[in-house]
Design a protein around this nucleic acid. Structure first.
Ligand SMILES: [Zn+2]
Ligand SMILES: [Zn+2]
Lengths: 318, 318
DNA sequence: TCAGGTCATCGTGACCTAA
DNA sequence: TTAGGTCACGATGACCTGA
């Protein structure tokens, strides 16, 4: 129970999460909503409340624009989606980031709040946020094995899920697909997750003040074209890979399991394909042989295979 | 060690390889794909691009037929696979071959290319050997979705793992009816709905022509250590591509998935103090199918309209 | 009628473990 | 070490429900 063995909630509406979808823990509804909406952005109408709707379980359907905005805000992205299971590292990373952000209370970057355009800013903001990343990310203080995702790619500082990839989608409608948004999820948002802080804020859809301004800033949007060529490191294995960011060393893509200490293999650029999309967290089957978490010095040689699974003993719908 | 750890890439899609699987360095995905597909060839549909898809990390899921073809092309085979480590000789050989291939650029032997049925005749040879498919497998197979297995693979020719290759080359006539092929160039973009506008060559799944021209010609190589285990005869016993020679049959419904999972915690600490992080959200979804009991124990909380579960899909096939 | 939500199914791929 | 199983997740579509 390092982190909390707690039931995950939908980051969008607060309902019990059905799983990790599109880069965030979400419920079925929000998952479907996002999946559908993304392919049909035109169906969304402007927010009537100046984009200040608070999304929760009750009113999540009240305003699509804000719901979608929050989806993006919490890190959901189709660009980063792909087949198959997400690596645990990926999820851990997402959670850690979230926690870290929570520890560092709001103080939302004003950048984010700069605009409240219903859709325009909301949807267009998916530009790569270059630097807004909270400083904590760069600090080595991070206790977790996961260090910063990757220095070389600003986008990755945020949710890696979003960082790369976009070609995966067949293009399509709006600028969304090509965005490399860095949703720096500043959570701690107004209690929308757990809510229940106040009387019953959930009834009201409009908050007193700005909720989540656009999670992303309107930055020069360099990431997209650049992404594929950022650097070999990233493309080699995976942006999330904590190892990759280790100073001086890099992990060989072919040696996923080797402990960090043994990393010294320079990344040969030989034949590495620069791919815009690489969310796969290849590599670390680590837990066994080379868990960053467990030092070799620890007793637990094996076991504790890093189980990220948690059974939600949740109610079965009544 | 070094051999294995070298920066290997998946020979199929180019992604960092997870190891040496089924006779070639492949990623997890391609490994799983091949392992699965081989046992259920009927699940593969014909290539929409006349078998000219280029497989890479991005689009590898776009066309199964071509992906499988490339798997075979790079030398993957279940017949040669086995547990345990590969001898260094074997791997070295594979690497050497590869290097040699690279040295010999695209001067593809047109021997194979010259004809519309690259390997067709070679694989058709398999038609004679009836021993195929040890697995339970249904006999009904689709009419070779794979347009043609592949031009002779470099590996197939010399890779001890696939001694079959040589024999295949001696094959005689072709049994496939469609190898000669219809120029049915399906113009419809296979996977893109709205069409990608990227110029990135990798975005496109279709190449101009000549996808895998066999890069290499035969090169004798004796793999002594392996010889005892991989005599040609044995390998031959199992056709590389049973499919191609199989009669035209309808597709049978896919085999059922894995049995319902229990809701219990998968690992829980086995004497360990710390609890693993559990992010999964197993829950109600499966409870329904997994445990019908649910209905009895509870008093129809929400009322299930009908219970056509599992019935539905069956009706579809036909 | 239709959008939102749930569920079933399948393919995929990360993770796990037997061999 | 790998082959194979497990299972989380994306895509899809049927179905249900409430507005
Ligand atoms: Zn939700
Ligand atoms: Zn691959």
């Amino acid at each position: 129970m390092i982190l909390e063995k707690m039931n995950q909630q939908c980051k969008v509406c607060g309902e019990p999460a059905a799983g990790f979808h599109f880069g965030a823990f979400t419920c079925e509804g929000c998952k479907s909503f996002f999946g559908r909406t993304y392919n049909n952005l035109s169906s969304i109408s402007e927010c009537k409340n100046n984009g200040e709707c608070v999304i929760n379980k009750k009113n999540r359907t009240a305003c699509k624009a804000c719901r979608l905005r929050k989806c993006l805000y919490v890190g959901m992205s189709k660009s980063g989606s792909r087949y198959g299971r997400r690596s645990n590292w990926f999820k851990i990373h997402c959670l850690l980031q979230e926690q870290q952000q929570q520890q560092q209370p709001s103080t939302l970057p004003q950048i984010l709040q700069s605009q409240n355009h219903p859709l325009a800013s909301q949807l267009s903001y998916l530009h790569c946020s270059q630097q807004q990343q909270p400083s904590h990310q760069n600090n080595n203080k991070t206790p977790s094995p996961l260090k910063s995702p990757l220095p070389s790619s600003p986008c990755m500082l945020t949710n890696p899920f979003l960082s790369v990839g976009r070609h995966l989608l067949n293009g399509s409608h709006m600028c969304m697909d090509k965005t490399a948004a860095g949703p720096n999820r500043v959570s701690s948002n107004s209690s929308s997750d757990s809510g229940a802080s106040s009387a019953d804020p959930e009834d009201s859809i409009v908050s007193n003040k700005d909720i989540y301004g656009s999670p992303v800033v309107d930055q020069p949007f360099n990431c997209k074209p650049m992404a594929k060529k950022l650097d070999p490191v990233r493309s080699i294995s995976e942006p999330l890979n904590p190892y990759l960011v280790l100073p001086h060393v890099t992990i060989s893509p072919a040696s996923p399991r080797s402990p960090p200490t043994s990393l010294s293999v320079p990344i040969s650029s030989s034949g590495i394909q620069e791919e815009p999309i690489d969310l796969s967290v290849k590599s670390q089957k680590r837990s066994r042989t080379a868990s960053p978490i467990h030092n070799t010095t620890e007793n637990v040689p094996k076991l504790t295979p890093l189980d990220l699974t948690l059974v939600r003993s949740n109610s079965l719908s009544g």
